[in-house]
Design a protein around this nucleic acid. Structure first.
Lengths: 329, 329
DNA sequence: TACGTCAATGTTAACGCTCACACTGCCGGG
DNA sequence: CCCGGCAGTGTGAGCGTTAACATTGACGTA
């Protein structure tokens, strides 16, 4: 910086002013400095700037070390929004999902000097861990359990599940079965809740939910059970991947989808429209979730002390073939 | 840090020594300092440390802003390996994929003070952009075009494609068609090359490849074309998602898989085993790719001036139903 | 006893930047 | 004509840490 100043014939402070777009710099001086910077290939040192300002313009993201579509898509939303807001993004994948590793991850990011943290790990254990977090650092959680008083961005899982279930019920063929996600995921709980609510409202039996782990494999396993039960005519799968496994199992057992069994998934992954048959599902706008996380987080960073906001995103039912038996038999 | 020193009754330098595990600190002093740190909730300031040491212990990752499985999985591999090596990870998603945004992204990371960059954007444009990169910063590219002299980690796409094609040919039913990925991806080129090589070796015709964009949708479109051609009996899809769309189209046109048409994909995404029918595909070990990237990068960072290494990962054919007609008709 | 050695600690000066303040002209109003 | 104000610039300090060197005391050895 001194070199730039010397070459431009000004003081280092003037260089700093040019760098930070201060108003009181004469146009001619400014361009001389800019030329000088380019000439020397000067790059400002962000560590020094962070040290003196106390702001790193960096946010941390704690994500699951998985390739699940939802978390990955949310991650991209966060990344993009942060870039637009001129913040950097520091990621930490979670090796395991107990509260200790969550706290470790937060501590890691805190030491790295992030100004806020987005947690994309919608597990009960994560939420619990966040309860006794160092409160000195702004945090936004994706799909947190509602009990917490931390800021969060939530997709209304229950509503989505309810819509999906109602849709299946509207075909009028008895109750709807459910392949749930892992019990310790808040999404699973929300979807079970919405599913139950819809069944209760329709005054039909609530069959015992099966539990998977979001993978196609686990959906397949559940499907092998459900396919054997002749009374099963409609299944709401906890996500699209499990729905895929489910479709596969039903196919193997010769249960026609949608004519004999209707299936609905959750997420609307890009492939869902190309399953056999194309999958009716509940779309979540993950990028929007990411964007809102960043908005809330930066809000907290730049004006601290405000009440933790909770933002709710509404999912949307996307109807495709897997739930709509052909009218012409 | 001064506060910690005062509370422990030592100088700030001794605190620093404890922090950095210097040998010459008496055990009793060390524990007094550690206690003092805990008491005050002290966190070292990484900006200050970076400023004085000149090392940020941070690597940058430039990734595609997509939810494609491969890049996401590689990303996780990088993240994990970096954490183990006690490096932080700074991500930048690429909004668009021209050379200008690549350079912008690198510049962004350079300003953020990263010590090296991993580029997970296997496009020709990206590779070209990297050619005229600021050379002052270590870089590793995933699946770079071989012409470059930058360090890279590459999956032997051609070999994988060749294996896949040979496998399809071995069933002995004429030539193998190909649904390629986008022309500007190096993966696409490698796979086309391997496919062509296998066909040439077997002295069969090389049909014109169709081109998709990796999405299930584009695979479906290609499938609608191929399904109409009665001579098509074996298709090698450029990735599993396109294979999914392809399967869907073949199914719609009543072309039985695998009995009438055999299909092979590429990647081995976790869902591939649950397609209808389960998909034969070529597995790439993406986490391994990520790990090697970090290894190479840290090698460059910690001992600069060494020749840029190029690491090659060998893919593996995974045979499932989609390419193996039932022996008992 | 005197002296070199070495472990354990302290002191001082950077690192590159921004902030607060001081300074220099020039302009316009009393 | 003087003086307050303001645009444009420079000066010095300090952010929290580590590196380099200085200091201290204890111990073994000549």
């Amino acid at each position: 910086m001194m070199d730039v100043a010397r070459l431009a014939g000004v003081s280092h402070q003037t260089v700093s002013r040019v760098l930070n777009d201060h108003p009181n710099v004469r146009q001619s001086t400014r361009s001389r400095v800019l030329w000088s910077m380019r000439e020397l290939g000067y790059r400002p040192n962000s560590a020094a700037r962070t040290l003196v300002t106390g702001h790193s313009r960096t946010i941390g993201v704690i994500g699951l070390d998985s390739t699940l579509y939802g978390p990955a898509a949310t991650m991209h939303g966060v990344d993009d929004a942060a870039r637009r807001a001129d913040y950097r993004v520091n990621t930490v994948g979670l090796a395991s999902i107990d509260r200790i590793s969550v706290l470790e991850a937060v501590e890691r990011l805190a030491t790295a000097g992030v100004e806020g943290v987005v947690v994309i790990a919608p597990l009960s254990s994560a939420s619990e861990a966040l309860a006794d977090l160092p409160t000195d650092i702004p945090t936004v959680v994706v799909n947190a359990h509602p009990e917490s008083d931390i800021a969060s961005v939530t997709v209304d899982q229950a509503l989505g599940a309810q819509r999906a279930t109602e849709h299946l019920l509207s075909a009028g063929r008895g109750t709807v079965w459910h392949v749930a996600g892992p019990a310790n995921w808040s999404e699973s709980k929300g979807r079970i809740e919405g599913w139950t609510r819809a069944l209760d409202a329709a005054r039909v039996d609530v069959p015992p939910p099966l539990t998977g782990d979001w993978s196609a494999r686990s959906g397949y396993e559940a499907g092998r059970v459900l396919a054997r039960l002749p009374e099963v005519s409609a299944v709401f799968a906890g996500n699209d991947h499990m729905a895929l496994g489910l479709l596969r199992a039903l196919h193997e057992f010769g249960r026609a989808v949608p004519d004999e069994v209707a299936v609905v998934g959750f997420d609307d992954i890009p492939e869902a429209a190309y399953f056999t048959p194309p999958l009716t599902t509940v779309r979540q706008d993950f990028s929007e979730v990411g964007r809102r996380c960043v908005r809330l987080l930066i809000g907290q960073i730049e004006s601290p002390g405000e009440a933790a906001e909770c933002s709710v995103v509404t999912p949307e039912l996307v109807v495709r073939r897997s739930s709509t038996p052909s009218k012409i038999p």
